[in-house]
Each structure stands twice: as C-alpha cells, then as structure tokens.
C-alpha cells in the first residue's frame, strides 16, 4: 500500500514540475512516469539498507534510461523527460539541514550534511551521464548492425539486377 502512495505522489509531483518547466503538454504525463520510476527505485533501495549515494545513482540511472527511450519514441530532446525526472532525487532536505546547522553555529554537523548533499548530487549527475553514454553506445551498435544488413540486402539486389 505504502509503495502505491509513493508511486502516485511522485508521479503527481514530477508531472507538476513538468508544468513549471513548461514541458510540451503531451509529454507531461510521461515526465510523471519517469519521475515516479526513479523515486520508487530510490526509496525501495534506501529502505532496504542501500547507502543513499548508491540509491541516488541507480535512481538517476533509471531516470536517464527511461527518458532516453521516451525521447527516441516521441522525437523530442531527452532533456524534456530527464530534468523533471530527477527532481524528486535532489537532496533538498539534506542541503536544508546543512544550512540550518551552519546558521546555528554547529559547523561540524553542517559540514557533514553538506558533504552528503554534495555526494548525492554528484551521484545523480554521474548516473545521468553513465546512462546516456551507455544508451548511445547501444544505439550506435544497433544502428551499425542494421545498416550493415541493409547494405548487404542492397548489394544482393544489385547483383541480381546485373
């Protein structure tokens, strides 16, 4: 039950971010799905004892892969889906705590929280970049396969015509 509430809420929240960032109206529900998937993976992993940095990395990785697939099928830039998708993963709460402790002159705890926020945002960025590079390699590989087959067929036809 809990997971369905999380799925639904993260879907609505990400779709609302699609509205704020002015995504094309047709793409907004799909933005929501991207965000819901990323958040669900993050929260499932972090509830089961995975360190938050790794969970964020995997969440962002999934966001980027799903965004890439949607971008290919809708023929819009990938940025439309990935930007709102990663918003639930952004460590807003941790960054807030870092600042709050610094304001309260508890610099040591503040630095600790700040370091956590820094690592998590780095992990999100790494997840995005890794997924993008992987997808590009995969698509290049697939395209190469297809073109070689096509050229093969073309050659066959050409020889037949001769």
């Amino acid at each position: 039950m809990e997971i369905f509430i999380q799925l639904g809420l993260s879907f609505v929240a990400t779709a609302c971010f699609g509205v704020i960032f002015n995504a094309p109206i047709k793409a907004i529900p799909w933005c929501g799905i991207v965000g819901a998937l990323g958040w669900t993976i993050y929260s499932l992993l972090s509830q089961n004892g995975v360190y938050e940095v790794h969970a964020s990395f995997l969440g962002a990785f999934v966001v980027a892969i799903v965004a890439h697939i949607y971008a290919r099928s809708f023929r819009v830039p990938m940025i439309v889906f990935s930007v709102s998708g990663i918003i639930p993963l952004v460590p807003g709460g941790i960054a807030y705590n870092a600042m709050r402790h610094i304001v309260e002159v508890d610099y040591l705890t503040g630095m600790e929280y700040g370091m956590r926020a820094f690592l998590i945002s780095g992990a999100i960025a790494m997840g995005l970049v890794f997924a993008e590079v992987m997808m590009q390699l995969m698509f290049r590989f697939m395209n190469r396969g297809r073109t070689s087959i096509q050229s093969f067929v073309k050659e066959k036809k050409a020889t037949k015509l001769k």
Binding site: F17, V83, I86, I87, V90, R100, A125, L128
Partner: peptide, 26 residues
C-alpha cells in the same frame, strides 16, 4: 517547520542547471 520549508523551496531548486552543468563538463 523544517519539512514545511523543505517542501516549499522544492519548486525553486536549480535542478536543470545542476544537471546541465555536469553534462557540459563531461
């Protein structure tokens, strides 16, 4: 108080800038 503020500032978070910055660096 903490959670209300965290929820409230989420729409202002520079998510696009952060991801774009790292992607351009890469």
């Amino acid at each position: 108080l903490d959670r209300i503020i965290i929820g409230g500032v989420m729409p202002l978070v520079p998510g696009l800038l952060m991801t774009n910055a790292v992607r351009d660096l890469m």
